[in-house]
Nucleic acid binder design. Sequence first.
DNA 1: CAATTTTAAAATGTATACAAAATTAATTGA
DNA 2: TCAATTAATTTTGTATACATTTTAAAATTG
Lengths: 224, 224
Amino acid sequence: MISNATRSLSVTDHLRESILSGGLPAGTKLQEVRLSEELGVSRTPIRAALQSLSAAGLLDYAPNRGYVVREFPISELVDAYEIRGSLEGLAARFTAERGLDNSQREVIEESLATGRNILNRSTTMDDHVLGIIGETNAAFHDTIMEASLNRLLSQMAQMSFQIPRVSNRNIIAFGLDELRQRHDEHYLIYEALLARAATKAETLMRDHVASVKFAAVRALRETR
Amino acid sequence: MISNATRSLSVTDHLRESILSGGLPAGTKLQEVRLSEELGVSRTPIRAALQSLSAAGLLDYAPNRGYVVREFPISELVDAYEIRGSLEGLAARFTAERGLDNSQREVIEESLATGRNILNRSTTMDDHVLGIIGETNAAFHDTIMEASLNRLLSQMAQMSFQIPRVSNRNIIAFGLDELRQRHDEHYLIYEALLARAATKAETLMRDHVASVKFAAVRALRETR
DNA sequence: CAATTTTAAAATGTATACAAAATTAATTGA
DNA sequence: TCAATTAATTTTGTATACATTTTAAAATTG
């Protein structure tokens, strides 16, 4: 199990992981005693975790009836990308208005350089490449979200990432060329941020996420 | 205390109310024993409530250090309206795409009629008028959010309402004429929804919320 | 036999006791 | 006196026992 400050937090991480990975499919009833026996802790941290995941939107809850892994209809999953586009667009706008500090610029520039390097060198798309791209992509998006200086926005973005398959780290496996296009868009967004062009940054970011959405929808169609 | 299915839920409602009303100002440390004595319940439901409000973004939490009522900088409050605008805009678009069912149309039409009536009859703005307008306004916005058929979106909108003073029920007290303008915008939005004009509905809704934002910002400036 | 009621089992909600961590107070030593 | 350390207190985290509600199984009745 993931190690954390408290058992409650560990259990929360563990269960979230199980749900997002599909180990606990939608509809699964999560019973406190069963889980406490399985994970070797008392009901107290289990209850805390269930409540937390319910607030995060991963579980359905009814008083006196407990928690159930909630269903994620495909339509909602597609919508989640639209929502992410709007939220990250807003984040880009706020960040353009407020500016990036030195350390934030550094992080973004490093993510751009690392991404550029691996995309130039690679001819095939293995797990290594996907892993690196996933990290640099997340660093880019997370930094902009952080620089927007808005907790509500960050919290909401966090929520949208808790929808299975909607995340900045899980790169949808489209071709290298497409990956390069997405990376070029990062450059353009960064330029707009440096130029403090708020509306442009917002539009570019929204369109960028929309492109990712198209790939995700295509991937979804193919796997089913 | 508010009556609910469980003590945990009652305590949650009670504390939320206290925070949003300003009874528990930002920075207040919420200690479990103290609250449990004050509210006459054990620590268990108190802990559940604190966790829930923390997930909702009203409290800051640190392991082994407890919960503190979080600060809401004015800038974040203004941003919250931008976020609301985007989210409700998306809701309008999804609803236009998916359509309203009969009962939803009924609710909206009744809210429009009730609002029209009271705005035509009234010459001054007392608490009665504000109460009715608040209700009809909330009914209008809530119904569209519900009709968007997207849980993530609804959940996020719910979050933005938990920021003090950002809510569809708390009408910012601008003049009757302005209230009439806002009400006319409701009509236009409803028309766009009926015509299934997705982009138009989204734009109208976003602009509508932006207008409310301007009034809110103005009101904030005056009260400080 | 089917439908309803009653009863038993199991699950969630709450209180409380104990453990561990953090905070505060007291003590020690320079 | 002041800093660092230690001890005491307070606060949060966890386990467990009991209460209440829900769910299921069994019994009853028409």
